[in-house]
Design a protein around this nucleic acid. Structure first.
Lengths: 344, 344
DNA sequence: CTGAAAGCGCTAACAC
DNA sequence: GTGTTAGCGCTTTCAG
């Protein structure tokens, strides 16, 4: 590979007949005492030479990397997922707007065990970290709590210790879905949640239970299934639930993937959706409009949330704020997977 | 934010009573003349202090960033896509195995226009680039051709100039799907391709045409539609096609998303899949097993491909090879969306 | 076996 | 207005 010699500020200085300092000052627009003539000469040389500042050198000097990391959990194939994709998209869009680049990291057990999440800071890899897909089991996050590091948890939060976060209101989401189904006339409803160790999943459940309770309807343990946040999990959960409770007329799933899986499972077990069983999802991913029937779901503004999280992270990095705690409202997207229960 | 002072090799030297050089030598295992005793002392100090080498300084010295960039095209939300997600996943997994981190970049027009793809190298942001979702229109890639830069095009290639690439055999894919449908007894088939400016899309079409031609079957222009690689596009394309050619009994789509969209469109237009119209996709994404009916599709080993592309990029970076040209075989995954045509 | 010193490319006090 | 110089943290000759 033909090594192209890297041209430095020194070359520009020589070429323009100015000194290193002058060149640096011009380049950074730092000092307005520079004469227009010199300025011009330097800029010309920069152009002629095609000079580009070396960011490793800049970073060494400024103690800033210009990078932020997105930490995602280890899933089947971590990035082949619409939810995380949407989040990453949003973060990338905003970060590049403000001149930051993004590093992708998967929080595998070895990654955490070998303390690489800390090393991202210690070794000056990144200036900040955005944590996605966090669970209550991620105790390593505690090391970030109040440690003066620019870290923001995206669309979740930890109940046991304070961490910067930007999150949707999942309790409201559960409540909203519950009220919607109650309004349709449902009385026997089930829940497929994502995971007991995810706070937002618990919040959704609590909101749902609250809405039902307010209407005098119970949600017994036998009507709560674990769907693992996956299509397969949702499918299996729906089948288990209908087997134990054939009288169920509506199901709320903790995300759209499980809702879609549940629809598959219901159909497979001979139920029509929504005629026999209504299904409501949560997320409103792109996919939700393209299943059969199109999914009625709670819309969580994921893209917007990712953007906000990134903005707040920048605030932390620049020292403009010290803590971040934001909760965003949600709303229902009505499509066709939920309808009134059929008359008994 | 409580600024934690960054501890350097100098601190380790002081703490261990050794010199900078010695510490560096120990750390890099570079020189085996170091006495075990000193070695021990240094390592202890490193531990005690929690010293972590600053990679900006290391990079400045070595002229290596330890990062590679993944360049993806600007889609609706670039990363909320199963295909790219799978690729990114694979690349991340392999890169972190060999100690590299990955940077995510979206090739928006402004990004290219302002030459940021070049700057990634010039400014020492990255040591190499993996280009995904490339089209024949991406002429800027020409600047990478033979320029001695570590760049690999992933799952595509450019017909007009030589670029390092690792790609699936899409011509074989088209041929395979064609032969499968012919074997089932289909004679009137349509194609929904992704985009005319994507070489692999053209290859798929050519392979498909070839298979049909060999069997004496034609693929007239009226049976070729553009599906834009999206669900919506596939849905619209299927509807257009059936309107113009009600006699079509099978459709090949250039990816699974369009195939799934096509199924939606066909159902919507009153056709049963596969009883009235068979649909075959291409990719074999996770999603493919979860639509109704489960999708028969050409399996392209995307994950494996991403891994290979990453390996080859490392070879280029280390100077172990000069050019990369790999084509990977594909095979059919039979599910339920294709069956023999119904008797006329 | 170990240390002093130069240098990677850049920024910023501090002179002049 | 502009240049000299020190230093960011590390690696690596080259002496000892």
């Amino acid at each position: 590979m033909a090594k192209r010699k890297t041209i430095s500020i020194k070359d520009v200085a020589r070429e323009s007949g100015a000194s290193l300092t002058t060149v640096s000052l011009v380049l950074n627009d730092r000092d307005h005492r520079i004469s227009p003539a010199t300025r011009e000469r330097v800029l010309k040389a920069v152009d002629r030479l095609g000079y580009r500042p070396n960011r490793l050198a800049q970073g060494l000097q400024s103690q800033k990397s210009g990078l932020i990391a997105i930490l995602v959990p280890q899933l089947r194939h971590a990035f082949a997922d619409a939810y995380f994709g949407e989040l990453i998209s949003a973060i990338h869009d905003h970060a590049s707007e403000v001149g930051y680049k993004i590093l992708l990291e998967v929080a595998r057990p070895e990654f955490i065990k070998s303390n690489q999440h800390q090393e991202l800071f210690d070794r000056h890899f990144v200036d900040g970290i955005l944590c996605c897909g966090v669970t209550n089991k991620d105790v390593y996050l505690k090391e970030f709590a109040g440690a003066g590091r620019a870290v923001v948890v995206v669309n979740n939060y930890l109940p046991s210790f304070k961490l910067n976060h930007v999150c949707c209101d999942y309790k409201a989401a559960g409540r909203m879905a519950g009220e919607y189904l109650l309004d349709l006339g449902h009385r026997r409803m089930g829940l497929i949640h994502g995971a007991q160790e995810v706070q937002t999943s618990l919040d959704l459940q609590h909101g749902f239970e609250e809405a039902l309770r307010d209407a005098g309807v119970k949600l017994p343990a036998s009507l709560v299934e674990d769907g693992l946040y996956t299509e397969e999990g949702g499918e299996a959960a729906a089948k288990r639930m209908m087997k134990r409770n054939p009288g169920v007329t509506a199901i709320l799933a903790g995300n759209d993937k499980m809702a879609i899986g549940a629809i598959t499972g219901l159909k497979d077990a001979g139920f029509r959706v929504p005629e026999d069983v209504s299904v409501v999802g949560c997320d409103d991913m792109h996919q939700a409009g393209y299943c059969d029937p199109p999914l009625t779901t709670v819309h969580t503004p994921i893209y917007e949330l990712g953007k906000r999280a990134c903005e707040r992270l920048m605030d932390l990095i620049k020292g403009r704020v010290d803590i971040v705690e934001e909760i965003h409202p949600v709303n229902m997207t009505i499509r066709k997977s939920a309808s009134p229960p059929k008359p008994a």
